[in-house]
Design a protein around this nucleic acid. Structure first.
Length: 421
DNA sequence: TCTGGGGTCCTAGGACCC
DNA sequence: TCTGGGGTCCTAGGACCC
């Protein structure tokens, strides 16, 4: 059996941990630049606040209902996530961190213990040790475990654990779950399936294999096979090496000067290159794009992207900054209000398997040592970037708006909670 | 004034190779 | 006069996830 452990309203729950004031109040967490709602506590859901709703359209509703609003604080959420995963991992041999707030755990052959009772124990322990409420779904496959988890959240809230261990229960939940709520079925496929009379997950598994293969590709076929209780994928117990690394963010305000956009790009490139080195990769292709704000119909719109092939794969920040600058100059146009710039590092290869260039004159070994030194200095100062590159700029005209940011309670000494008694 | 960011996998079609 | 088959790599685009 496989179980999916999923934190309830994770970002909202994390904000509550160190802020007892908001324990009973409705809580929402906003996306970057305080743009949209991306997490809601149960009380906020009851108020009818929708996922993805733009914050500036909801000011009245939020104020009138005394909703506690937070900017997103990923430093805090990642740290809480580590604690949750560390607690869960003590219970099992094999587990997969699927996302910041979910893990799959392998319960097969577990000490003759009842998986249901074991998961109740896991849930209670996470809540006691970390303070985050979780729901757990247990089933023979990952897709069914997802479905069981959703059922636990909706219909077994007080227990928080649900197991699909008999055909009757499985049939009941398959009939209960609409196709659009099945893991892997998004807007397009649910509209298509509905138009063919497929409304529930149960309807879906009645469809002929060939029909699924033809209309939903092998991805759909795997999904349906998993819904029938036949596993199609193992747990990924090792974190996967990324195949692309991208950073693209909206600016806190619109920018039209090239130097401001270039500074933002410089910062994204620097951060992306650091991620690249962290997984011991180099990239041999980069893509840069710029874009205006499509919501502003009064503005002229512009979007363009460009891809550059590098002669030799690299993870050397100054070199990547150079190429990114060349890319930007090729697509840059004056007198637009830009909203966003982004960099993608592509064609990643293991740094020890880089194809060298015949006419390459750069001392790659020296570059690597330099970047290792830079990374370790910056890391030693706990995320405060001490070593900077010229192209990152000094100003912060492009930086994010985060007006309601909570403290980094668990990662910054100066922001640790002080308890008075 | 203000509408998120970071990923994966699959398919189809074209260019090219032997 | 007849005009193949098997394969790789690259790119663009679509769909989906949290």
């Amino acid at each position: 059996m496989i179980a999916l452990v999923d934190c309830n309203n994770f970002y909202a729950s994390a904000e509550r941990l160190f802020c007892p004031r908001v324990l009973k109040a409705p809580v929402v967490v906003l996306s970057n630049n305080d743009g949209c709602v991306i997490a809601r506590s149960e009380q906020a859901k009851v108020l009818g606040i929708k996922m993805g709703a733009p914050a500036f359209l909801m000011e009245k509703q939020l104020t009138e209902n005394n909703v506690e609003v937070f900017s997103s604080n990923y430093t805090l959420y990642n740290s809480i996530s580590d604690r949750v995963h560390a607690t869960i991992s003590k219970f099992v041999m094999d587990w997969e961190k699927y996302s910041i707030d979910e893990s799959f755990i392998d319960l097969s052959g577990y000490y003759g213990m009842n998986p249901y009772r074991y998961c109740k124990l896991i849930r209670a322990t996470v809540f006691r040790n970390v303070g985050i409420p979780v729901s757990i779904g247990i089933a023979p496959t990952r897709t069914l475990a997802k479905m069981a988890n959703r059922y636990a959240k909706k219909e077994r809230r007080h227990i928080g654990v649900f197991m699909l261990d008999t055909p009757a229960k499985t049939e009941m939940v398959l009939k209960y779950t609409k196709v659009e709520d099945v893991w892997g079925i998004g807007r397009q496929f649910s509209a298509f399936l509905n138009s063919h009379g497929v409304i529930t997950a149960w309807d879906l598994i009645q469809m002929p294999q060939a029909w699924i293969r033809k209309n939903m590709s092998v991805v759909g076929l795997r999904l349906v096979t998993e819904l029938k209780g036949i596993p199609c994928a193992e747990l990924e117990t090792e974190p996967a090496i990324k195949k692309n690394i991208g950073i693209a963010k909206s600016f806190g305000s619109l920018l039209s000067r090239r130097e401001d956009v270039a500074a933002a790009l410089g910062n994204y490139v620097t951060a992306a290159a650091e991620k690249l080195r962290a997984q011991k990769s180099c990239c041999s292709r980069i893509q840069v794009f710029i874009q205006t704000n499509g919501f502003r119909t009064q503005d002229r719109q512009y979007f363009r992207s460009i891809t550059i092939q590098l002669p030799v794969a690299t993870s050397f920040t100054p070199e990547l900054l150079n190429y990114a600058d060349i890319a930007l100059s090729r697509i840059w146009k004056d007198s637009y209000n830009y909203k966003k710039v982004g960099i993608f590092l592509e064609n990643l290869v293991d740094r020890d398997k880089v194809q060298l260039g015949l006419y390459d004159t750069k001392d790659r070994e020296k570059q690597r040592k330099l970047m290792t030194a830079v990374d370790s200095i910056n890391k030693a100062f706990n995320g405060k970037e001490l070593v900077k590159f010229g192209r990152q700029g000094a100003g912060g005209r492009w930086s994010l708006r985060r007006q309601r940011l909570s403290p980094c309670y668990t990662t910054r000494l100066s922001e640790v909670l002080v308890i008075k008694y």
